[in-house]
Computed example of a mutant assay.
Amino acid sequence: MLELAAIAFPQIPTGIPIGPVEIRFYALAYVAGLLFGWWLAKRICGKDELWGATRHPEPIAVDDLIVYIAFGIILGGRLGYVLFYDLPAYLDAPLEALKLWHGGMSFHGGLIGATLGVFLFARARRLPTLPILDLGAAVAPIGLFFGRVANFINGELFGRVTDIPWAMIFPHGGPEPRHPSQLYQAALEGVALFVLVQLLVRGGALKRPGLVAGLFAVGYGIARVIGEMFRQPDPQLGFLAGGLTMGMLLSVPMIALGLALAGLALKRRPAEA
């Protein structure tokens, strides 16, 4: 049998030990994503010329907004994982759903939770919801990038078996060389999507409420579908009908909703100051 060449998986610690406690890189990825997103969101809110006449939060309000979004991401992400990826197991052991360090998080669930957080924040501040969704979409790829890098460091959510020169043997992926699909997704969902939304923001898209959020949803959905073509499906689910994965199926309605939202935004006149 022909032996496939592969790059050895780098020996990267999964966290930073502080006394008896280890701060996991996965948790640090969430913190870094929120902090950098908070910083950039405040800068965007402070540039009125980007918004035109669109009502938007003041920079100081982002301090509260980030709390709403953080809780939405954590609660929605965990609930989404339970419902979409491993419901039978959690029905047998419901308390396991509370153990965030066991199992995983779902981006699509986190997105729903973050959207609900934005809605509650907008209602509390009596602000329109769409501009705040645009603001969240403008900074969301930062968290996606850090999250995928953390997946790589943990050696989880690895790719399918391949013979490409840069294939890796992951500690929990068996002896076969695999795609480093976490890095593909970091590049697509993080870097490429960040460039896209920043170009939209600088190009005046915030003057059409819903446009940045809609195109973010379309861009993420397409990036996720591409990434899923290289990623090994979750073992408890495997491939679904037609060779699709759960990530692909959840991204299809996201793309459709994003197209609808962007289409409605483009029909409006830009809110010039």
Rank of each mutant, 00 (worst) to 15 (best):
L98D: 06
K99F: 14
K99Q: 14
G103E: 07
M105P: 12
M105C: 08
S106T: 14
S106P: 11
F107N: 07
H108V: 14
H108T: 08
H108R: 10
G109N: 10
L111G: 07
L111A: 14
G113I: 02
A114F: 12
T115S: 15
L116P: 01
V118S: 04
V118C: 14
F119E: 00
F119K: 01
F121N: 06
A122N: 10
A122T: 12
R123H: 13
A124R: 15
A124V: 00
A124P: 00
R125V: 00
R125K: 15
R125L: 03
R126T: 03
P128Q: 13
T129L: 13
T129R: 11
L133E: 07
L133H: 05
D134K: 12
D134Q: 13
G136P: 04
A138C: 08
V139D: 04
I142M: 13
G143L: 12
G143D: 10
G143W: 11
G143S: 13
F145R: 02
G147L: 03
F152W: 09
G155L: 10
G155S: 09
G155D: 13
G155F: 09
G155Q: 06
L157Y: 12
L157N: 07
L157W: 11
R160I: 09
R160G: 02
R160V: 06
I164S: 07
P165K: 07
M168A: 08
M168D: 03
M168W: 06
I169M: 06
F170G: 01
P171D: 08
P171Y: 13
G173H: 04
G174C: 10
G174V: 13
G174N: 10
P175E: 07
E176C: 01
E176P: 00
E176D: 15
P177Q: 12
P177G: 11
R178K: 13
H179K: 09
P180W: 07
Q182I: 01
Q182L: 00
L183N: 10
A186G: 05
F194V: 00
Q198T: 14
L199I: 13
L200E: 03
L200Y: 03
L200D: 03
L200A: 05
R202D: 05
G203F: 11
A205M: 06
K207L: 00
K207I: 02
K207C: 08
K207G: 02
G210F: 02
L211Q: 05
V212F: 07
V212S: 01
V212R: 01
L215R: 00
L215A: 01
L215G: 02
F216H: 02
F216W: 14
V218C: 14
V218A: 12
G219Q: 04
Y220P: 02
Y220W: 14
Y220Q: 06
G221M: 02
I222A: 13
I222N: 02
A223G: 04
A223P: 01
R224N: 04
V225D: 03
I226P: 04
G227N: 06
G227K: 03
F230L: 15
F230C: 09
P233G: 09
P233F: 04
P233Q: 03
D234M: 12
P235M: 04
P235D: 13
L237W: 09
G238A: 10
F239M: 14
F239C: 03
G242L: 11
G242W: 09
G242T: 11
G242M: 10
L244Y: 05
